[in-house]
């Protein structure tokens, strides 16, 4: 700063901006969505992380929060929602069901959304506490700074592979 200017890369500036302006698309299907309501309301207040602008249209969102059990009936819809989100995008599997199917191991339950779409952060818990969701958010934010192109190419190939 001795000469009154700094140098950086455009990507770094963009990532810095993206980090604090995540627009989540809450894909809430079950119990975890109720805890998410707690997260957006007064006590926990997701807006402290710059991520309070919920978008219910995937085309306007860059953070997909999958909260709840995904059944086989729902699988094609989740895949389509992910496909509709513009790059760059991040996915959080909130709760045991989204992460692994949870304690629903049966004929109609997908055993983790990573069978369908790539996942950046898994949050354990049934349902996770709002604090855990905040932790996931911070992890995503940290990840954005370190992000490189490989992750996206990788994710594209994974969605091909993950077709059910």
């Amino acid at each position: 700063m001795a000469f009154g200017f700094v140098t950086t890369r455009v990507t770094d500036v963009l990532n810095w901006a993206r980090r604090y302006s995540l627009w989540p698309m809450p894909y809430g299907t079950a119990c975890c969505a109720i805890e998410f309501m707690g997260l957006i309301s007064g006590r926990f207040d997701i807006s402290r992380f710059g991520a309070e602008l919920l978008r219910f249209s995937p085309r306007q969102a860059d953070l997909l929060l999958v909260m709840g059990t995904i059944s086989y009936k729902q699988a094609p819809i989740l895949k389509r929602i992910y496909a509709q989100m513009p790059e760059p995008k991040w996915v959080v599997a909130v709760g045991a069901c989204a992460a692994s199917g949870g304690f629903y191991n049966n004929y109609h339950t997908v055993q983790g959304i990573d069978e369908l779409i790539p996942v950046d952060v898994y949050v354990p818990g049934c349902p996770p506490r709002p604090e855990q969701l905040m932790d996931a958010l911070v992890k995503i934010q940290d990840g954005i700074l370190k992000r490189d192109k490989g992750r996206i190419q990788n994710s594209e190939s994974r969605i091909q592979k993950g077709d059910i």
Partner: peptide, 8 residues
Amino acid sequence: EIGYMHRC
């Protein structure tokens, strides 16, 4: 249509 949350 229902059944999207059918977790048996």
